[in-house]
Design a protein around this nucleic acid. Structure first.
Length: 393
DNA sequence: CATAGACCTGCTTAT
DNA sequence: TGCAACAGGTCTATT
């Protein structure tokens, strides 16, 4: 099994990076199951990396690449014959348009303009740089998204990613194996497991897989959903897209492991509720930077009331697409993706290196200052410095 | 109703 | 090397 030759065997859509940037939308904490590979023999002006993952209905691997002017896509099927039907019926084309909401919200740039006008104090100060450009809220599958965000609680993005890949590999059979585009090994793709594919004694298994205390949350939520939807959990959750926020929030929060924040994430990212702004530690910190942010909410532990008031404050600034604005702010605030190097600590007496580090993390914009950057800044007088040493892997 | 503690775990990070 | 703190929070048991 292999990909079609690029670009001749692929399809494409004219699309600017300002309207969608894959690298700023896929690996920034809303979806966790995309594989990301560099492309080995890349010529200037052509895509340098590929994102790919297994997608259902029908089962296949969707591969995406992007140039400054086009989004390229192809579907790789277990039976190559089916790729023709995909093209004929526009299956993956439709999927791309739906997943990235290109038809529902065709002009992301106009949204940025709107947010700048609405909120000159905070969003207006964001430099739309490499990290903040083209950030879209994805329209994800609710079942997968729900499990993902139950898993996300009190966890890092790298660990969430690792756990969910493990989850898919454990409970879903291999679908397709492809050589990686960087010519470095191969990847076996698995669909996200359907609810019916999960074993009855789930909690112990999930614990052994590293889910920790979330294991019981997932088992309990699955049981609750089975009681409501029988064997049709995925379809049942999809129908929640048509209901109003308060109704759906009530149902989501009734699930174990789903609090206000996770419920808001699920509704924003798969239930067509674009105004919802999930308030997590990052977004709370971002809100606190706003000059008009009520001082009585500053440095307060998160409570239902603080949550509500913070969310309302941001909604007032960002408007009906506030959840999308939050996604931009969140992505811009994320620490730089970790390079594949081993960091060796050595004692060196210089503050110059520390300053260079700071500039790498936060070149121009103090809005996108990260925790670690802030920590570094506070400790500038220290003499610990890092040397980077390449490590093959 | 609001608010402390406890809670699994690690391609964590810091001390 | 060892130990603590932290991570896109939530649950539970108390005031």
């Amino acid at each position: 099994m292999s990909r079609p030759p690029f670009p001749s065997g692929w399809s494409s859509i004219p699309l600017s990076l300002k309207n969608l940037t894959l690298a700023n939308s896929l690996p920034v904490g809303q979806s966790f199951l995309w594989h990301r590979h560099a492309i080995a023999s890349s010529t200037p002006g052509c895509p340098t990396e590929e994102f790919s993952r297994a997608v259902d209905n029908p089962p296949r691997v969707v591969c995406l690449r992007q140039s400054p002017s086009h989004l390229y896509y192809t579907g790789v099927y277990p039976n190559e014959h089916d790729a023709l039907a995909d093209l004929r019926r526009g299956i993956t084309k439709d999927w791309v348009n739906d997943y990235f909401q290109l038809k529902a919200h065709p002009e992301l740039e106009k949204m940025y303009d709107d947010w700048r006008a609405r909120d000159p104090e905070l969003f207006g100060k964001v430099e739309v740089n490499k990290r903040a450009v083209g950030v879209r809220v994805l329209r994800q599958d609710p079942w997968e998204c729900l499990i993902a965000f139950i898993t996300s609680t009190n966890n890092h993005i790298p660990r969430i990613t690792s756990l969910l890949h493990r989850f898919s590999q454990s409970f879903s059979p291999p679908l397709v194996t492809l050589h990686n585009p960087d010519n470095d090994g191969e990847t076996t793709y698995h669909l996200f497991p359907t609810p019916t594919a999960l074993p009855t004694k789930l909690e112990a298994l999930l614990r052994s897989m590293g889910f920790g205390y979330r294991a019981s949350f997932i088992e309990s939520s699955l049981q609750t959903l089975e009681e409501e939807f029988k064997e049709e959990i995925e379809a049942g959750l999809l129908r929640w897209r048509n209901q109003d926020v308060d109704t759906v929030r009530e149902k989501l929060v009734a699930l174990k492991g789903v609090g206000r924040k996770v419920a808001d994430c699920v509704m924003l990212m798969c239930m067509d509720k674009p105004s919802l702004i999930p308030i997590d530690t990052h977004v709370a910190a971002i809100a606190a930077r706003h000059p008009a942010f009520p001082s009585r909410l500053r440095n307060k532990p998160m409570s239902k009331q603080v949550y509500d008031e913070t969310q309302q404050f941001l909604l007032d600034r960002w408007g009906p697409m506030g959840g999308w604005c939050q996604a931009v702010m969140f992505a811009a605030d994320l620490p730089e993706p970790k390079p594949k190097v081993k960091v060796v600590k050595t004692k060196v007496n210089t503050s110059v290196t520390v300053k260079r580090k700071l500039e790498e993390v936060s070149p121009t914009l103090n809005l996108k200052r990260t925790r670690s950057a802030t920590r570094l800044e506070l400790k500038q007088t220290r003499t610990i410095v890092t040397d980077e040493v390449k490590m093959e892997e």
